[in-house]
Write a protein that binds this DNA or RNA. Sequence first.
DNA 1: CGAGTGATTGAACTTCATCAAATAGCGTGG
DNA 2: CCACGCTATTTGATGAAGTTCAATCACTCG
Lengths: 242, 242
Amino acid sequence: MEGVRETAPKTDRCGGCAIRGVAICTSLTEGDRHALRAMGQPRHYGAGDTIFGEDERFGFLANVVSGVVKLSKTLPDGRQQIIGVEFAGDFLGRIYRDRTSFRAEAVTPVHLCCYPRARFEALVAATRGLEERLFRDALDELDSAREWMVLLGRQSAREKVARFLQMIARRNAGGCGPALGARFELPLSRADMADFLGLTVETVSRQMTRLKTEGLIRISNNRIIEVEDVGDLEAAAGGWAA
Amino acid sequence: MEGVRETAPKTDRCGGCAIRGVAICTSLTEGDRHALRAMGQPRHYGAGDTIFGEDERFGFLANVVSGVVKLSKTLPDGRQQIIGVEFAGDFLGRIYRDRTSFRAEAVTPVHLCCYPRARFEALVAATRGLEERLFRDALDELDSAREWMVLLGRQSAREKVARFLQMIARRNAGGCGPALGARFELPLSRADMADFLGLTVETVSRQMTRLKTEGLIRISNNRIIEVEDVGDLEAAAGGWAA
DNA sequence: CGAGTGATTGAACTTCATCAAATAGCGTGG
DNA sequence: CCACGCTATTTGATGAAGTTCAATCACTCG
């Protein structure tokens, strides 16, 4: 686990927490929130660090406090597919099973709030709202996995790239999306985008420049994207409200 | 809802139920099982019938008692992707949300045991084991959705078809798989296989005959498949225990 | 037997992957 | 500050995999 730093816990650890209003903590009563707070261990990873590998034992469940985590699976011959990307506020790790079935890697510097598995599961068993909250989150993840299956199986390279940009734009807008323009930084490299979309780096790059020449987006520094009209991008993505 | 028959409930409705030992009913105490039994309504669909459509209100949660159900999503222009296939014992429907996000269609004649949503959710809220059971099932579905994402994004047509056959063979063996041969009937048409694998009918057909000429499988009546050595098939699928 | 559906086969074409360079950014150290 | 070297990204040329279009074949059901 290269580069993992374990920050010393402060007295009031949640007071200034950036995700205090979104994460699972919001689904608890005051008392239970206290119990959760007591077991939370901050952990910190550098960009590129592996948080856990495929098929290994990982003793924690965690909240992503800041940064971006990519989840991926690898075929025996090395082909890779990213199966999910998690942002601040997302829950990381699989409850009820201590063996991982995919890899989690920090894409940017990442802060996690880690809960020891046994203690966390005990809290889930003792609490009412928490299990339901986690369940609902899992169902949402299932929905988005299924949407992604449509993308992977049935959409063209251009549509894939457009939809990816649209997804990031939406994430970035934080729900209250202004209908028209958007400007954001891509959290993933072209290679990661390719692994997420089931394409090659070259194809991703070509489609990006194509969207650029078509006037749908502007690109600065490879990572900064400006979208003229999110509606156009949505149309290029094959027409989905999602 | 064409062709849906609602069978009159018998007095002891679960006594002879084929999935009594696998379905969610096994995760209940005697008393709760009684409550569940009281609300179960048998329903019956013919092959090709729509159970529910995309984005509509569906007032039931259900167990698949017999038959095969395909779950699919459709793009505005008609392209279709099958996102899951359910067999006897599987749970159908999304708890905590009464609006569907995919279509469910009977592929063979199907028997469901339907629970009215409101009453079922009340039972879930009142029971301890049931929510966890449903949660675990959802997590398993999430896992297989993610495995399928790898297939859709990163595997070749030959691998896709081989893996599909392997999956059906495994389902059919019911866990206690004999390592070597297998013989089974495909629940899906070539067109449905294509929609499941993100391919065209023609490509599926070509890969099937290819696997046949390679001696990995034998085909009778288009739907009956004999696998020589399941290990070979697994190798052709890109090498996965899964 | 004939119609109709589902599956296979063939040929031309598209899209994306592959291989190979060239270019652009970025951080480092002089 | 600039040159250097590294990596990420773009661009080009070619090829292969899979799609598309068009028939043909096979099986089932009247």
